[in-house]
Structure formats: structure tokens, C-alpha cells
Nucleic acid binder design. Structure first.
Lengths: 217, 217
DNA sequence: TAAAAAATGTAGTGACAATTACACTTTTAT
DNA sequence: ATAAAAGTGTAATTGTCACTACATTTTTTA
């Protein structure tokens, strides 16, 4: 069962200082990540993690409080790492076609990486009945950020009278979905996806989008 | 844990014939659906289902073999019901804008219904490491069908020289994603979505798509 | 209506896994 | 160097289910 929020009672945790302590913490996080990402939250066995990481169960509980504390730690680390490419807004240096392509490529890389898929699955999976902190973190750092970044850009273009769009932020979301959406199910089902397929999707998305919103000057 | 495929060893099952038997079966399915849809597979307690449905555990196991058999039964029923609207191809009676809009509306209804969300979640969740029968069923009856139906239509339009598209089936998937994609995360996180938002998305998707691929005659 | 089949209810069994306890060793700070 | 703090290993505890057994009752069928 494990309604995930019931375990969100934070237990007192110790902060690692010593050399060995830090090493253990890192190793635990690293092994835990592998387990959570491949087996999901419920499917992960804490004892197994310790057996592989080499520390002691006691240490794990001192550092992370409980299973969910460990999960939370792993999750935060990975979410930040995953979406780091979107934090630097270096997308808007060229013309519109080039910029869209560049942005789309970045998006495809992030969302098709093993970590990207795994994290997405976790987010969906652990969403039981209650709003959870974990999901909020993910949504804000991930999808919402991407939409905002592209949306701001489109917005500015609209103000310059270059494009014709009802709602630039909706359009951003729609472009994003055109680029990565078609591969979601196939990826979920572990179908292999050829690079030429993602490239084709990106190319066609850019074409459709450009022709669809560019003002004929 | 429960690697879902390991339980796919079908146990002998009894077919219900008697009045009471049928009633029990129906009631079990009905209660099971509620549990699976709200708690997920792992989160569902078989004993609890029986307690609520009023039958006996023994009966459940005679009819469905094991927990996964029950899940499978619920899943098949619901998947078929959910995607029934797409089985009748009554979408292509008008002009392109009207047809796209009609199709999109149908899509939004299906994918935003509580059952639609619940089933999607189940599919994602129970996808552990192995390819599963359950997922295949879902993908074929659901997303793949929708893409094929719209794709066939676009293909025919292309052959008539009405639209300009590299890959009509990819375009179908992209249109679908423009229509429903932007709401997936918000829905997953139980945000409320106003009808005017979905309408706006549909409208803008149709506009972008039309302008993007219509041949200027 | 009486034997067979199906359904019920209760009470297990067994396995798994999160968490805790504890005696012991190693590391760290004074 | 020595006490305190942190870390280790093993084993026990505890709770939760999926699944089974079985004695009893109800329904079906011949």
C-alpha cells in the first residue's frame, strides 16, 4: 500500500561530516537511485540497498530517516541534474527555425534519457490520491520551466509582431508535445526508437509550427 | 515488488453460470476496479475487495485465478469501454477544420475522463522491466488506434494533394499531442482544468495545424 | 428431493520487507 | 590518549498481504 504522504513525517536526520560518513551517504544514494529507478518506490528493498552499498542499515536510517527520506533525497538530486540544461537560457541566439530546433533537441535529449524516463515513471507512479511534494518539485523544475522558457521567447516574438499566436505559452506547450509526445508510449513500452525518427518528428514539428504561426511579411 | 509477469501463469478458472455466481463476479469486478484505479496494482488489497464486495475470497480465486487475473479482467473491460468512441469512424463527414475539431474533442473527452487518467496511470505504473501483455492491449486499443484513424485520413488528403506533410502518421500523433499533451501533467497532479482551457488548446491546435500543412491553392 | 456443485466464513500459512535493537568496532575531537 | 560520536553487522520484531484449507451452508441439477 504505502500512501506515500503518510510517511512524510520527517524523522530527525543526522548531517554527514566525517569522510567515511560522506562516502557512505554518497554510495547509498547512488545505489538507491539504481533501485528506485528500475524497480519503483514500492519495488525497492531497503535491505538490498544496504547489502549492495556496503554500509549499515543503521546508518541509512540515521541519515535519511526512513525509506521515503531516501527516495526524496535521490529524487531531488536527479531532478536538478536532469533539467540543468534548461537553466541556462542559451537557446535564443539564432533565428526562429534554428532556435526551435535547438530547443527541441535539448528537450528530446532530456526526455529520452534513461533518467528522464525513469523519473517520469516515478512521478506518475507515486501520485496516489494526495498532492505530493515530490511531484511539485518535479513539475516546477521540469515541464513548467521548459514551457516558461519557450513561452517567454514566443511572447517576445509576438510583441515584435513576428508571429501570430493566441496564447504563446499554450503554443510552447504544444510545440513541446509535438516534439516529444509521439515517443512517450513507445518509450514507456521499451520499444527502441531510432534517431532518424526523433529527428523527423523535430523537423516536422518545426515546419508545422513555423508555417502555422509565422506572419507573412 | 510483484514483477507483474511472473504471475501471468494462468490458473484454471471457473466460468460463472449461476445467477448468484454472475452477481458475485460483477460485484467483484466493480469493487476491484475502484481499488485498482485509485490505489494501483500493488496498492490494492485483495482481502479488502472481498470484504467490500461481500463475496468470499474463495470465490474470487475460483473465478479469477489470482490477483493478476482479476486485474486483467478489470483492465480489459475498461480499456474497451474507454476507447469505444474510436471504433466507429464517424469523424470524416465534414471539411478538414471541422473534422479535426470533432476528432480532437473526442480525444479530449476520452483522455480527460477519470477512467482515462486512471488507466493511463496503471499502464505506466505496472510497466516494470518486462514487456507486459496488459500494456500491449492498452497501446493497441488506445493510442495506436487513434493515430491510425487520423493518420489514414491525413494520408488520403495528401494523396488528393490537399495537404503537404512529410509523414501523415507522425503528423497525426503530433496533432493528438497538441490537443491533449499540455494537460497531462496538470491532470496527473490533480490540478483542475477549465473547459475553456481545453477548448483553447483544441482551437489553437487546429489553427496551427491547418495553416501549417494546408496547401495554398 | 437428494446428491453434486458452488459459495461462504473463518482462520490459518508463508513470505517478504520496513524498522528497531544491540553489542561491537572504528573514527573523530578535545 | 581517551571519551564521545559515528559506523557496522546481525538478528529480532512487526505488519502486511497473497494465497490456501476446511468445515459449513446454499444453490443447482438430475
Amino acid at each position: 500500500m504505502v500512501p506515500i504522504l503518510d510517511q512524510f513525517v520527517l524523522k530527525p536526520r543526522q548531517v554527514a561530516v566525517s569522510k567515511r560518513g560522506l562516502e557512505r551517504q554518497q554510495k547509498l544514494l547512488q545505489v538507491a537511485q539504481v533501485h528506485f529507478f528500475s524497480q519503483g518506490y514500492a519495488g525497492t528493498n531497503v535491505n538490498q540497498i544496504v547489502k549492495e552499498a556496503g554500509g549499515s542499515l543503521n546508518t541509512l536510517y540515521r541519515y535519511f530517516g526512513n525509506k521515503l527520506g531516501l527516495f526524496e533525497a535521490v529524487f531531488k538530486l536527479k531532478t536538478d541534474a536532469l533539467f540543468a540544461p534548461f537553466q541556462q537560457a542559451h537557446f535564443w541566439q539564432g533565428d526562429l527555425p534554428r532556435n526551435l530546433t535547438h530547443f527541441g533537441q535539448c528537450l528530446q535529449e532530456v526526455s529520452s534519457s534513461p533518467d528522464g524516463i525513469a523519473i517520469y515513471r516515478l512521478v506518475v507512479t507515486e501520485n496516489n490520491s494526495e498532492q505530493s511534494e515530490i511531484q511539485r518539485i518535479f513539475y516546477q523544475h521540469g515541464p513548467q520551466t521548459a514551457i516558461r522558457i519557450l513561452g517567454d521567447y514566443l511572447q517576445s516574438l509576438r510583441q515584435l509582431g513576428k508571429v501570430e499566436l493566441q496564447d504563446p505559452y499554450l503554443a510552447a506547450a504544444q510545440f513541446i508535445e509535438m516534439v516529444k509526445g509521439p515517443f512517450f508510449y513507445p518509450r514507456l513500452f521499451n520499444h527502441t526508437i531510432e534517431p532518424h525518427q526523433t529527428q523527423a518528428a523535430l523537423q516536422q514539428a518545426v515546419q508545422l509550427f513555423l508555417k502555422g504561426c509565422l506572419k507573412a511579411d
